[in-house]
Nucleic acid binder design. Structure first.
Lengths: 239, 239
DNA sequence: CTTGACATCGAACACAAGTTCGTAATATAA
DNA sequence: TTATATTACGAACTTGTGTTCGATGTCAAG
């Protein structure tokens, strides 16, 4: 209403601590969830009880040109720029600030003690159901990912417990038939007619299979009856 | 029961015209506005009067792996892939450049039996060194990520073996001081002066702490001497 | 001590937006 | 046909979420 003096137009003014935290929170949740947070979500994150205070500060942020708001629209805000880095592309569209290389690992079945490991066939690169794909950052698998012959299995049963692997865990495997000492592998043992996960050590004509659980004793088997099904790259457990 | 041979997984399914239009509309508005549309907005755009029909088709799209939805959240959906850009076509390991929503989880320290869990301070959402951050796809943590108060710890020592957690494993935690029955939590026990990972069950004035390893017996402790340090969301092991 | 701009708070309010459910139309199979 | 699953409809219903507003607190200028 009343403009006493020549008030500075929308100026980038210095942001308060609160506003900075809000901005960061928006940025983080946006990249994580794919959509902006609500006023109340922001409030909870930044420790503000009153929605109106959040609203107030959001308006400040808009005046300073950091965000843009859509009236009456739930989650109706977009990031225009972030704190230090200007580069939030034009219409708030771009996500991850750093491009993360993601590996798409198909879930091809279950691993049980009583059967050999299911291995994807030649149709590997072909189709697999999209809901059965795990997206994993490459760095989680290390650079040991070879030729795209990586797949995942859901563990069924409690039989892998000596590998510290639980029922329902996910084992990420690299398809291969040989192994180096120290590799963790999925092997099929003729003698016991079972699949098991063990650390692999070649010792002459024998193979020492060492459980991950150091409490447990290794087993020694004839190298000829050890059939390597794949090398274990990672184990995931969602609680 | 009455499925003789159709072992086809749930839904390879081609999308209906409607679903394609919906998908395109989501993509368009998302890039335009920076946030996803509501059910009613979609309905109006695709000429569907009933919100439940839109809802129905959104669920179909989720089943087919095109989108991901967050229950009860306005605009709570994110695009996983679009119509023409079939991200997952090639080899199993294909660097996906499609946008996957990634949670940046800071590695804040080590978890050992002999000390309480390190918890990040109030500067949580702030900056952390890039090399100490794990990038995890949201869907790996489920949507149980609450407030972004998620952090990771590297396990030190073999003391968590009854939780089937090994030395050097990574435990992803959500900061919280309470738990529901069945949650896996990191707790500090006064009596033993140690941190341990267990499934949590409240039983009157006592708490039953159940090891993940079903071979092992639960322990019962007075509720007052149980201090929950966080809820375990996932365990990762790189071999 | 007042004054007033600025930031904060809490609570009530109104509408936005997801969910549910009974029903009907349309397919597909037996 | 008759049965069964899929898709569609619309109208409540519940909850999510932005908005408004009066009251309070702070702090520096008058």
């Amino acid at each position: 209403m009343s403009e006493p003096k020549s008030r500075r137009r929308r100026q980038p003014q210095k942001l308060s601590e609160r506003q900075k935290k809000i901005l960061q929170y928006i940025e983080r949740t946006y990249t994580e969830t794919g959509y902006p947070p609500t006023i109340r979500e922001i409030g909870k994150a930044v420790d503000i009880d009153s929605t109106s205070v959040v609203n107030y500060n959001l308006n400040k942020l808009e005046e300073s040109g950091y965000i843009q708001r859509e009236k009456k629209v739930s989650r109706g805000l977009r990031l225009l720029k972030t704190l230090n880095s200007e580069p939030f592309t034009e219409l708030g569209v771009k996500l991850a600030d750093d491009t993360i290389n993601v590996v798409n690992v198909p879930m091809v079945g279950k691993i049980v003690a009583s059967a050999p490991v299911p291995v994807p066939g030649d149709d590997f690169g072909m189709y697999y159901d999209d809901d059965d794909v795990i997206h994993l950052p490459v760095n989680l698998l290390g650079s040991r990912v070879k030729d795209g012959e990586v797949y995942a299995l859901r563990v069924n049963g409690e039989s892998m417990i000596d590998a510290l692997v639980n029922h329902n865990d996910i084992v990420v495997l690299q398809r291969q038939e040989t192994a180096n000492n120290g590799d963790m592998v999925a092997v099929w043992l003729d003698e016991n007619s079972e699949t098991t996960l063990k650390y692999f050590y070649r010792e002459g004509a024998k193979v020492r299979l060492q459980p991950a659980n150091t409490m447990m004793e290794p087993i020694y088997v004839d190298a000829r009856q050890v059939h390597i099904q794949g090398r274990v790259l990672a184990v995931l457990r969602q609680i």
